[in-house]
């Protein structure tokens, strides 16, 4: 009888150890998403996305925050800040100067962008983190298409 209980306990302990190891690998240490390979949840022009946030930031936030969005428009500025490259669709002007959609590019998509002339028509996808009162912010951006 004792042997049987011992066996059951041993099996349960084994299952527990396996579950803990799997949990550590696949849950606690799960990697960040591969943003470059993610398909866009939405595709629209830069002006439409920006205007939706300006008109009703709460409603637009519920729709787009935390989503992969592809935007198309003229990239007015390409900025290099602290080793990061940002594509800027300038669409308005306000307290902080330019306003629009700012996309922090993935490292491997930064180089091609720096070579583009200002005002190039591009399609860029990125992970929307929200609207900060001046700009719609997108991270992990990748260049999908350039019309130059």
């Amino acid at each position: 009888m004792k042997k049987k209980w011992f066996k059951i306990l041993l099996i349960l302990a084994g299952i527990g150890v396996v579950a803990a190891v799997l949990g550590y690998i696949f849950i606690y240490n799960k990697p960040h998403p591969n943003y470059e390979k993610m398909n866009p949840d939405f595709t629209l022009t830069a002006a439409v996305l920006f205007n939706e946030y300006v008109e009703d930031s709460e409603a637009a936030g519920l729709e787009y925050n935390g989503k992969m969005v592809a935007v198309e428009g003229e990239v007015t500025l390409v900025e290099s800040v602290d080793e990061q490259v940002k594509a800027y669709f300038v669409l308005s002007e306000g307290l902080f100067g330019n306003e629009g959609i700012r996309v922090t590019m993935l490292e491997n998509h930064s180089g091609p962008l720096l070579d583009m002339p200002p005002g190039s028509l591009m399609s860029i996808k990125g992970y929307v983190t929200g609207y900060n009162g001046t700009d719609v912010i997108m991270e992990h951006g990748s260049l999908m298409h350039s019309y130059q």
Binding site: P33, R102, Y131, G133, E139
Partner: peptide
């Protein structure tokens, strides 16, 4: 990606921070 503005005449100082823009080592 923090927005900040300082008016050196009045001393007004503002910040605006998007919470989803915080980056962590672990997803």
């Amino acid at each position: 990606q923090v927005n900040s503005a300082l008016d050196i005449g009045s001393g007004d100082f503002i910040f605006r921070v998007l919470m989803k823009s915080f980056q962590f080592e672990k997803a």
